[in-house]
Design a protein around this nucleic acid. Structure first.
Length: 837
RNA sequence: GCGGGUGUGGCGGAAUUGGCAGACGCGCUAGACUUAGGAUCUAGUGCCUUCGGGCGUGGGGGUUCAAGUCCCUCCACCCGCACCA
């Protein structure tokens, strides 16, 4: 055979025609040795697992349950990138190990398939988003299967399947019935180019996240979910979760609980009062002015005639600024006096009311009492506009800067002399007694805007009647299916394309004959991903979302692995829905994800994020054909700790392949027979390293320390090469340990070792603690903390004996010449340190 | 600015309770086998060195018989939030 095969480097390849052709046809520039022919082996076992449904989960078995979950993938048109297999391999290793340890493992996958890209594609090309999505799913599915993940494919779910979104709609109805879904007129991010409203998180730097189109503010009637009703529980229940601390902190900040007081101020010459929220009610005597947000409804009413022009100019100026500009350019404080005065409830002093955009309408009540002496923002503002600064807490220098620390109160009548905490509670008592205010907890978290003006999403099951009332679609009419539409274009009015589908949108009540119109908004993409992990447990249930008995068996999820990009939104929304479902008795746990882990990112070779524009994207398909899925899995786990972001390295990938080749050659000869190194003898030279390896790999995998577990397996293989023979039970034990990482190759070796059944349910190896200790141990001899000699002694040598042995050692004596021994520290089985001078 | 995190060879990274820094892999050097090698095998590989040894975990200081690990301080980088009253 005379092909030119790039990087061809094993003469024996030429004799294997089948191998040549595969490699030749794929044209990969991989480094293939004939010893381990991955293409054939991987296909063979993927077919075997599929045909035998090897990884089918028995919902109600007697085994202990283990639920391993991957984050719900969005099947994009680009297919898988090398970042996907990192998290998926980690969960797959756990799933495979747990199965071998005798657990009943739930390890499912599915598709979060609604979303803007499919709709954009449909608009751009006139094709159906459904077909496009279906094709993308097929690509993802093929790629995932080629990586050898042990999913139970009978549990595959798809958010765009009416049998699935029937229950998404059902949950929405329940939220609606429990007053947690409501309609409100809110200023939303209207993107004219996309013809849709975007959530805050979809707007980046004033442009749409997808497409980078400009975004403007526009008031619109929207569906909202009252997540704020759960703010406190979402916060406190974080405590018991085994999640990364940084992530919990992000959620805490997002929820942003702050404790303080609401204080009511009257306005001079008006009957109306306004309230402010403050975390420092103790500084009320130091409040010298008040500020309202530009959107505050009272501004028009209270502005005096001579300030009218100035205020209107200011409001206009602010309106034309985007949110970004308002916050970003906020280095310099701006604002205008309204001409009106508030009355400080505690001392009756007049406080000018200003308008300024450093106060946000969306937080608290949209108005503040300004205490410039003890708040940095107020201080800065007061300096700019020369407003009075009155010290009420001693300890700082208010000539220089605001003092926000603790201290003794001054100029504060009944608070004088008190510290911060005492003063706060005393002031709250006073406010409550005099009906001027009350204790109050405020959250930064806002209600969830739960509507998108799009076609490709779950229809919201609500009908608006001509009499102005609205009702939910009856349960027996669910799912309310998304109608097939030949043309999907934004209506242009801000409504979704569904508004143009007369047949679908118009309804008549069969009994009363009243006319109505269906809700044309659809749900945001987050909806389907809020509960998918529940459906996996009972995916074909026609009567309910899932059998409560099955949910009880499997929840909470034992381990959930995915990227940190979902740290806040997805995880908070899913927790919210889960708590709601708990309240209405659907699920029996308060939290869905007991343990969560964020995998790091895989960067391009230049240590930059992989992106098409940089041309540094690595395609898993290429690696699977050149090096094999097992190599890719092994490499991604060996690169570094799972949570680190590490750059891709082709050399490192080659190294992983080399290790698998070394393992293969340890067991299998070129003629495919077993090597004669594997014997039935009970050799002892590998005892210690074998048992160490079993122990370390088991513990490391359990703790997601795959890189160190793999390195221990490399140590074992190196020792095996040095040994004369390998006892068969060690040889088998090692293949089992490696099988979660490199399942195809290990199945093949397992079979060649004479086993008929799949390795997937072979018992996980156990280790013998007694084999880990040796009779002799090396003790380090130090003089003044520096290692000068080493000594081999029997384990458990007494302290005194060890000290004598150490001091009689020549190499130690040499360092003690002319010195007096002050102290000898002996740590048995570890070291002796002689202190001398 | 605030909150969280990370700094260890040429590179990715290992190091129980403070107890031999650099496991394992990559890369590199030399050798062996070879028509050939980006295969395989063997040996070596933190830095400096007058070959005695000295110095080394971002910088400086401290605690200790002993510090990558504990404390103080400074610096750099990454992530999140960004006027949240």
């Amino acid at each position: 055979m005379a092909f030119f095969i790039p990087n061809f480097r094993n003469i024996r390849l030429e004799t294997s025609i089948a191998g040549d052709w595969t490699i030749q046809k794929l044209g990969r520039k991989g480094r293939i040795t004939m010893s381990f022919e991955h293409l054939g082996i991987e296909k063979k076992w993927q077919k075997y697992w599929d045909e035998n449904k090897t990884f089918k989960t028995n919902t109600f078995s007697n085994k202990e349950k283990f639920y391993v979950l991957d984050m719900f993938p969005y099947p994009s048109g680009q297919g898988l990138h090398v970042g996907h297999p990192e998290g998926y391999t980690a969960t797959d290793i756990l799933a495979r190990m747990k199965r071998m340890q005798g657990y009943e493992v739930m390890h499912p996958i599915g598709w979060d398939a609604f979303g803007l890209p499919a709709e954009q594609y449909a608009i751009d090309t006139g094709n159906s988003p459904k077909e496009f999505t279906e094709a993308n799913i097929q690509t993802f599915k093929r790629q995932i299967k080629e990586l050898g993940f042990s999913y139970d494919w009978d549990r595959e779910v798809n958010t765009t399947d009416p049998d699935y979104y029937k229950w998404t709609q059902w949950i929405f109805k329940k939220l609606y019935e429990n007053d947690l879904a409501y309609m409100d007129e809110v200023a939303v991010n209207w993107c004219p180019a996309l013809g849709t409203v975007l959530a805050n998180e979809e707007v980046i730097d004033g442009k749409s996240e997808r497409g980078g189109h400009p975004v403007v503010r526009k008031p619109m009637k929207q569906w909202m979910l009252k997540i704020t009703a759960y703010a406190d529980r979402l916060l406190t229940d974080l405590e018991d979760l085994d999640w990364p601390e940084s992530l919990k902190e992000m959620q805490r900040n997002w929820i942003g609980r702050s404790e303080g007081a609401e204080v009511t101020f009257s306005i001079e010459g008006h009957d109306e009062t306004f309230t402010v929220f403050t975390t420092r009610p103790d500084t009320l005597f130091g409040a010298t002015y008040a500020v309202m947000a530009p959107e505050h409804p009272f501004i028009k009413m209270i502005t005096t005639a001579d300030q009218k022009e100035a205020v209107e100019n200011y409001l206009h100026e602010v309106q034309t600024k985007s949110d970004l500009e308002r916050t970003d350019l906020a280095k310099d404080k701006t604002g205008v006096f309204t001409g009106a005065y508030a009355v400080n409830p505690v001392n009756g002093e007049k406080m000018p009311i200003w308008v300024a955009d450093y106060v946000l309408m969306s937080y608290g009540s949209g108005a503040i009492m300004a205490v410039p002496a003890h708040d940095e923002r107020d201080y800065e503002f007061a300096k700019v506009f020369e407003l009075p600064i009155k010290e009420v807490v001693a300890g700082g220098n208010i000539e220089e800067e605001a003092y926000t620390g603790d201290g003794s109160h001054v100029n504060s009548e009944f608070l004088d002399g008190l510290g911060k905490d005492e003063a706060i509670s005393k002031m709250i008592d006073w406010l409550e007694k005099n009906e001027k205010g009350t204790k109050k907890i405020t959250y930064r978290l806002r209600d969830w805007l739960f509507a998108r003006q799009r076609y490709w999403g779950e229809p919201i099951p609500i009908i608006h009647w001509e009499d102005g009332s609205m009702t939910a679609v009856p349960d027996e009419e669910l799912p309310l299916e998304l109608p097939e539409m030949t043309e999907i274009k934004p209506s242009g009015t801000g409504e979704s394309p569904l508004a143009t589908n007369e047949e679908w949108v118009n309804v008549v009540d069969p009994e009363m004959g009243m006319k109505g119109r269906r809700e044309t908004n659809t749900m945001p993409q987050w909806a389907g991903s809020c509960w998918y992990f529940l459906r996996y447990v009972d995916p074909h249930n026609k009567e309910q979302l899932a059998d409560p008995k099955a949910l009880e068996e499997w929840l909470p999820i034992d381990i959930y692995i995915g990227g940190a990009e979902h740290a806040v939104l997805h995880l908070l929304y899913a927790r919210f829905w889960h708590k709601f479902l708990y309240d209405i008795g659907v699920v029996s746990t308060k939290e869905p994800f007991q343990k969560l882990f964020n995998q790091g990112m895989i960067l391009g070779e230049g240590n930059e994020k992989m992106s098409k524009s940089k041309g540094n994207v690595v395609n898993p398909d290429d690696i699977i054909s050149s090096h094999g899925a097992d190599t890719l899995r092994l490499y991604e786990m060996f690169m570094g700790p799972l949570d680190a972001s590490v750059a891709w390295s082709t050399n490192g990938l080659d190294g992983s392949r080399r290790f698998l080749d070394r393992v293969w050659r340890l067991y299998i000869n070129d003629d495919n027979s077993l090597t004669d190194k594997i014997t039935d003898e009970a050799a002892t030279e590998l005892d210690k390293v074998y048992h160490e390896t079993v122990k370390k790999v088991t513990e490391d995998f359990e703790n997601l320390h795959f890189n160190t577990g793999i390195s221990q397996m490399m140590v074992f293989v190196n020792e095996c090469y040095k040994a004369d023979s390998i006892p068969k039970n060690y040889a088998e034990g090692f293949v089992k340990l490696l099988s979660p990482v490199a399942p195809h190759m290990c199945e093949e070796i397992w079979q060649k070792l004479g086993n008929e059944k799949s390795i997937s349910y072979a018992g996980w190896p156990a280790y013998d603690e007694s084999k880990l200790v040796e009779d002799e141990v090396e003790v380090v001899l130090q003089v003044m903390g520096k290692v000068r000699a080493k000594l081999s002694v029997p384990v458990g040598t007494a302290k005194d004996d060890l000290e004598k042995l150490a001091l009689s050692e020549d190499s130690v004596q040499k360092w003690l010449e002319g010195k007096t021994i002050r102290k000898v520290i002996v740590v048995p089985d570890k070291l002796v340190n002689v202190v001398a001078n």
